[in-house]
Simulated scan of single mutants.
Amino acid sequence: MEAHRLTVMRLLLVGALAACLAACGEDRARENVRLQVEQAPDYMLPAERAATGPIVLSGPAMETIAQLDSIIERNSLRRLVQFAEAQSGFVSNFAGASHDDHWDLLRRTGFDPLLRLDDLLDGPYGVKAVAGETWYVWPELAALEPEALTPERLNFSQRARLEELVGEAGIAQIREGRGYPGIRTAISEDGRWLYYVHEIAGEE
């Protein structure tokens, strides 16, 4: 009788051990399950970096930035005007006003051209080719063509950046096919300061 009980107990222990091993095996199997999902759409993907890395500013462009930084540090709007006037074809506005009158008016209405230029040059820039020249454009999204600026063509981080820069009103203008409507500036590869504007051509 005692031998029979021992046999039954052994069978129960073996059964319990087998059940435990099976359960552990199932847990491991669950851990190894891999779900297959569709690739995220482009606008959800992080911004891609060029395989060669960011394009480095040319020497002449860096010299121009150094000159602008010096003017900004002096907080001299007069020197900024003089520097702009020395640049061939420089544009500060599309209303036909002189650089002096335009920037002075902006400063009196609460827009400080020097501080805003400082903010721009401290941020990221984009690169575009214009008539065989390389232009460095601040901010980076202002280097995109209008059709490439629509939110649907941008990835998630770029869309957030665009909204931060121009707001919903600016995005509405972009959807109408207009160019980047925010504050922007550009320097050519040979060091010419090309423009510093926040208007769209044709507007007053």
Rank of each mutant, 00 (worst) to 15 (best):
H99D: 05
A131L: 14
I65L: 14
I174M: 06
E140F: 03
L106K: 12
A131P: 01
G110R: 12
R79L: 14
F90A: 11
S88M: 08
E85D: 13
N93V: 00
P146A: 04
E147T: 12
P151D: 12
N75P: 05
A142Q: 02
R78G: 09
L121A: 07
P124G: 03
F83C: 03
N93D: 02
A131D: 15
S98K: 02
D122T: 09
V130H: 11
G126M: 06
G177N: 10
S157L: 04
A131N: 15
W138M: 15
A172H: 08
H102G: 00
T109S: 12
L165M: 09
V130P: 04
I71S: 06
L106H: 02
E152Q: 13
G89A: 04
T134V: 15
A148F: 06
S157W: 11
Y136R: 07
Q67R: 15
A66G: 07
R79E: 15
G96S: 03
E73Q: 14
L105V: 08
E73Y: 06
D101M: 00
A160C: 02
R178Q: 14
P113Q: 11
V130T: 11
D119M: 11
F156T: 08
Q173A: 13
P151N: 12
V130L: 13
E85R: 07
E85S: 06
A172W: 08
V91D: 00
Y136V: 05
Q82E: 14
G89Q: 09
P146S: 07
G110H: 09
R175C: 05
G123R: 05
A95D: 03
A169I: 08
Q87S: 10
R107T: 13
L117W: 01
L115E: 14
L120C: 01
W135E: 12
G126E: 08
N75A: 12
D112Q: 10
T150S: 09
I171C: 02
Q82T: 09
E152Y: 06
L141I: 08
R74H: 11
L121V: 05
V91E: 01
E176M: 15
D118V: 03
A169G: 07
I171P: 04
A169M: 10
